[in-house]
Design a protein around this nucleic acid. Structure first.
Lengths: 259, 259
DNA sequence: CTCAATTTGTTCGTATGTATG
DNA sequence: ACATACATACGAACAAATTGA
């Protein structure tokens, strides 16, 4: 009870869902392997400090997902792993980002030519004087949506390929334009929550976490020509990076440590 | 009603909390600015397709957080912004990662010398034959926890500085060891959920989202000497990277595009 | 000052969900 | 499976405060 209230103060999500989240994670990470018999109800009751019925609700949830199989008199067994989507491996440099986007299937769902200005943070360049066109699209993989892209494209860029931008991803096209210079390109990844529109498009619940990626291209005049807010489904997001890319291997028998 | 059930099917988080999440985000992103009068209850009812009382519960939640101020007869106003923690800007190369970790305050809370092997994925090197020591620590900033580090340190590395590793961050110490070579170092970022221990240490709810970072160092023999699973509080996590770091500016009047 | 429109605040009844023991 | 308590959500009606005509 005391534990319940303290947990409730922190999250307000129904307890059995919290419990189910943790158990799902255990299966996912292999802490409970497929075929294993998991702890008994009594052990779980004690571990989570909740009532038996609450544990059973959590198990029922995972049973519906096909992850658990409770058998009277025997125990509860792991009957499957949550399917990971993790298709995406977010690129960490321009070339590979363009390459990966080029392969994507996307559906353009909205275009507003006279859009409001995107609000640019420090270091994201200055706004294009001719204004922006707003483009929204959804990216699919195996017929399932995995990201929503909200893009502000500088008007003078958009006009170079009004037709093309309506149907294909903008970034590769921009990369191909010889008369467009890109002085800076950076992305910032954070964790956000799904707005009603995003939730709808990604088919997730309102307020569920998403991986939010802001991608900004700045031209040689310091103008932000491409400002994208991308919301990735959390299960489709992974970002792997090599930390020694620039410097190469370090240390070893003979200290080559600069510093 | 139909919308309710469909949302409920997707998330099962209480509706008023979902609504509050979205409204909090709107304040955070500046869609609703401080001092603004936000939409009326009736408009919000329609927008979210929920009952008046549900909207009021969401507003009450944000009122308690100091973000909204509802005034009878006048409207509801934005009275503050959610405090951003966002201290962290995760490093994307080895040098700066070592430097940033060096500055952190950490509390070592657990050490197990004969720990189970970490399960290594493809490309993460092979396990150290002498086994690993498990170290768990919490990193603080302004007295608030922002990350939990679960580290498997190869036994032969741990023994080089048993005392030191008990009190300070391991990574900078390893970087200083001239007789330790690091052939590969990479990290993978995903979105995870808080386990009971992590939730407790970060003071968040069970199953709440976290930014999970796996950091692996592999020595020149292909042995994983440092395997860390780091769970960041979602509000303390931001990862900014320059996409043109390697190639420099591209395009412009005269196409200099290599390929 | 009064009136009407607008907007938040409160309450009732009902149904279902969550959690305990 | 049951009894109990409380939380969540709906819809609707009414009350109270503010504003401007």
């Amino acid at each position: 009870m005391s534990k319940l209230t303290s947990l409730y103060d922190r999250s307000r999500v129904p307890l059995y869902i919290q419990v189910a989240s943790v158990m799902r994670q255990r299966i996912d990470t292999g802490f409970w392997m497929e075929g294993d018999k998991i702890s008994t109800l009594e052990e779980l009751e004690r571990e989570f400090s909740v009532a038996r019925v609450t544990i059973r609700q959590a198990i029922e949830l995972l049973r519906e997902e096909g992850l658990l199989d409770a058998q009277q008199g025997r125990g509860t067994f792991v009957s499957g792993k949550p399917k990971h989507n993790r298709w995406l491996n977010l690129a960490t440099d321009f070339e590979s980002m363009v390459a990966s986007i080029r392969e994507n299937v996307l559906k353009r769902i909205q275009i507003d030519e006279n859009a409001a200005m995107p609000d640019l943070a420090e270091g994201e360049g200055k706004a294009a004087p001719e204004g922006y066109t707003f483009l929204r699209s959804v990216q699919y993989n195996n017929n399932e949506p995995f990201s929503v892209v909200n893009l502000y494209l500088a008007q003078h860029i958009f006009e170079k390929g009004r037709e093309i931008f309506s149907h294909v991803a903008a970034l590769p096209k921009i990369a191909e334009m010889d008369d467009v210079s890109i002085a800076h390109a950076h992305q910032t990844v954070t964790i956000g929550v799904a707005s009603p529109e995003t939730a709808d498009l990604l088919r997730i619940g309102l307020g569920e976490p998403t991986a939010d990626c802001r991608l900004v291209l700045v031209d040689s005049d310091g103008v932000a020509i491409y400002v994208a807010d991308i919301h990735y489904h959390k299960n489709c997001f992974a970002l792997r990076m090599d930390l020694l890319e620039k410097t190469g291997p370090r240390g070893g028998r003979k200290a080559n440590g600069r510093r």
